[in-house]
């Protein structure tokens, strides 16, 4: 799905990490941990092409990012679901319009039945016509998750998706991701919440990647 080969990234003040060689397989579940500022968000941005590696190569869904055109990148992102900590909605559109955006903005058909089912699955049936600024933190994260998965992505990337949520809501949200993973979607969640990782590992086989001292290490299943 996503393969890093000797990847390094540098914003100009020295590499955040280097020589990262990682592969996210189809249907896998990964966590990405590390202290604040270690490069978790940068790693994720490399996974969906918002950043290009300073050196090395990143293959997204079989395509080398370094040779991708802008349209190729857009088409690749249509197969990747992304959940940001700050959600990033179009605040003037309703919840259902935001959720449907990955389909409607890429010329694909939006089935109203599927949309309603999805909103029901994430527990937002009653907020379909609400505007994002009126939602609670948990509702916003679930809206972001619904938007990320409406196009049945092959990979789901989430950057601190439970950062602003209480434990119950965090469990609820991550359980939806586990359910999605069981349906075949590869999942990568960047988080520093060890309890969340332990909670997920009781339900699914998950691997943990740790960024520390400029290296991306595989912590394995023995966390």
């Amino acid at each position: 799905m996503i393969a890093f080969q000797d990847v390094a990234h540098d914003y100009g003040g020295g590499p955040l990490f280097r020589d990262a060689t990682i592969t996210l397989e189809k249907g896998s579940f990964h966590f990405l941990t590390g202290p604040s500022g270690a490069g978790k968000s940068t790693f994720l941005k490399l996974c969906y092409g918002e950043l290009r590696p300073t050196s090395g190569s990143v293959a997204l869904l079989g395509q080398d990012m370094n040779t991708m055109s802008r349209d190729d990148l857009a088409r690749t992102r249509q197969r990747i679901g992304i959940v940001h900590q700050d959600c990033q909605f179009l605040d003037h559109l309703t919840v259902e319009q935001n959720v449907a955006l990955p389909l409607s903005a890429t010329g694909r058909t939006v089935s109203q039945d599927n949309l309603a089912d999805l909103l029901g699955w994430v527990g937002l049936a009653g907020q379909a016509r609400a505007l994002p600024p009126t939602l609670s933190g948990g509702e916003r994260q679930r809206t972001a998750l619904a938007r990320a998965i409406i196009a049945s992505p092959e990979v789901l990337l989430a950057d601190e998706p439970t950062g602003n949520l209480d434990w119950d809501m965090s469990q609820r949200l991550v359980s939806l991701m586990v359910e999605l993973n069981r349906m075949g979607t590869a999942v990568l969640i960047a988080t520093h919440d060890m309890n969340l990782i332990r909670f997920v590992k009781t339900q699914v086989s998950a691997r943990v990647l740790r960024i520390a001292r400029g290296e991306v290490q595989t912590a394995g299943a023995d966390l």
Partner: peptide, 13 residues
């Protein structure tokens, strides 16, 4: 922000 979100969901230029 609108442009960023649209690019994020895979919209083409």
């Amino acid at each position: 922000q609108v442009i960023r979100v649209l690019r994020l969901v895979g919209a083409q230029d």
